[in-house]
Amino acid sequence: METLHLHTADTTPFEIHPMSWVDEQRHEHTLTPHRHDYYVIIGVTSGRGNHNVDFQHYDVQPGSWWFLSPGQVHHMQMDGPHEGWVLSFEPDFFCISEANRELLINTGLFQNVLDFKPYFIPPEQLDLLEPYLQTLQGEYQQKRALREDMIRAWLQLFLIQASRTFADQLVTVSETSKSVCIARQFQDLVDRDFTRKTRVSEYADQLNITPSHLNDTVKKVTGQPASEHIKQRVVLEAKRRAFYGTTSAKEIAYELGFEDEAHFSKYFKANTGQTFTDYRKAIRHKYVEK
C-alpha cells in the first residue's frame, strides 16, 4: 500500500484543487487503497460513488464531506462525472502554534478515527463553505506577499465555519464543552501515543484528571470508555499494517508495543474474531489480488 506525501508545485505544504484536477494529475496514485501523511478534506458537490475508509464502506452523494487524518487508509471510486473540492495540508503547516493545534482538535472534524463518518450538507447550502474555498484557491494560485500566512488564516476560518456547519453531526449527545474538549484531547493523545501508552492512567496524568473521571467523561461523549478507545486504536493500526505485504506479524507486534507475536496474535483475535494471518489474507484478497 502506498503512502502519499504532499508534493506541491512550490514549497507551500498546502494544496486546494477541484476534484477533476486530482483525477487527471494524481489518477495513478488513487486507483488502489492508500494513505496520506497529511490531512485531506474532500467535498463532493455533484456525482455519486463509494468510499472505503479504513476498510469500511460508505456511499458518496452530492454534499458528502470527508475529513481524513494522516494515516487513514482510503479509496474513493466515483460513478461517472463528478465535481468537488480537495484540500490537503501538512500537520506542521497548520499547527504552527499550540493555539492552532488546539483549534484543529476542538473543531472535532478530524477527531473521529475510530468512529469515522462523512458529514453532509445539502448542495443548495454549499454557499456556507464556498466563499472560503474560493478565497483559499485564489490565495493558493496567486503568489503574493505573506501567502502562507494568508492561507493559514483562511484555513482557520474555513475549519471554524465547517465545524459550525456540521455542528449537529459532530456531537450526538448533550455534553458540556469541557467534557467534549477532554474527550477530543484524549483521542488526540491516543492517536499520537498508542504504541507507547496503553493504560488509561497514563493519559489521565497528561490531562491532569483521575482515570475514573477520564473513563466516565469519554464514555458519556463517545459511548465507549477510554480503555476501549485505546484498544481499538491498536487494532485499527494492526489492520492498516496488515495491508503491507512485506511486514511480518512479528515485526508488527514489536512496532505496536507487544512483547511477542503470541501476545499480539491473542490480542488481535480477541478483538476481531479472526487471527491476524486470516485477516491479512482476506483484506489483501479483497483489495489487491482481485
Rank of each mutant, 00 (worst) to 15 (best):
residue 239 K to D: 06
residue 240 R to I: 12
residue 224 Q to F: 15
residue 239 K to L: 08
residue 197 K to G: 09
residue 185 Q to D: 06
residue 218 V to I: 08
residue 173 V to Y: 07
residue 176 T to G: 14
residue 181 C to E: 06
residue 191 D to M: 02
residue 216 D to F: 04
residue 238 A to L: 09
residue 233 R to D: 04
residue 230 I to S: 09
residue 195 T to F: 05
residue 225 P to H: 12
residue 173 V to C: 06
residue 179 S to M: 02
residue 220 K to L: 10
residue 171 V to T: 14
residue 204 A to R: 05
residue 167 A to F: 05
residue 210 T to S: 15
residue 182 I to E: 02
residue 239 K to N: 14
residue 232 Q to A: 07
residue 164 R to A: 10
residue 201 S to A: 15
residue 167 A to E: 14
residue 183 A to W: 00
residue 197 K to Q: 15
residue 217 T to N: 03
residue 175 E to A: 13
residue 220 K to T: 11
residue 201 S to P: 03
residue 187 Q to C: 02
residue 191 D to T: 04
residue 232 Q to C: 03
residue 215 N to H: 10
residue 186 F to C: 02
residue 237 E to D: 08
residue 170 L to F: 10
residue 166 F to C: 10
residue 162 A to F: 01
residue 242 A to W: 06
residue 243 F to V: 09
residue 202 E to H: 15
residue 226 A to C: 07
residue 209 I to M: 13
residue 179 S to Q: 08
residue 238 A to F: 13
residue 204 A to P: 01
residue 221 V to G: 05
residue 169 Q to R: 04
residue 230 I to G: 08
residue 238 A to Y: 15
residue 234 V to D: 05
residue 208 N to P: 00
residue 194 F to P: 06
residue 235 V to Y: 07
residue 178 K to R: 07
residue 242 A to S: 11
residue 166 F to Y: 14
residue 199 R to K: 14
residue 223 G to F: 09
residue 166 F to E: 10
residue 239 K to P: 07
residue 236 L to V: 11
residue 233 R to Y: 07
residue 193 D to Q: 11
residue 201 S to V: 14
residue 181 C to F: 00
residue 236 L to R: 12
residue 229 H to R: 10
residue 191 D to K: 02
residue 172 T to V: 01
residue 206 Q to N: 08
residue 241 R to C: 07
residue 209 I to D: 04
residue 210 T to R: 12
residue 198 T to W: 10
residue 209 I to E: 06
residue 193 D to V: 09
residue 213 H to D: 06
residue 220 K to G: 08
residue 167 A to N: 13
residue 243 F to A: 15
residue 203 Y to V: 10
residue 168 D to K: 13
residue 166 F to Q: 04
residue 196 R to C: 07
residue 208 N to W: 00
residue 238 A to T: 12
residue 190 V to I: 03
residue 198 T to H: 12
residue 229 H to M: 11
residue 207 L to D: 04
residue 218 V to L: 08
residue 206 Q to M: 11
residue 223 G to K: 11
residue 229 H to E: 09
residue 215 N to K: 13
residue 211 P to N: 05
residue 211 P to M: 06
residue 202 E to V: 14
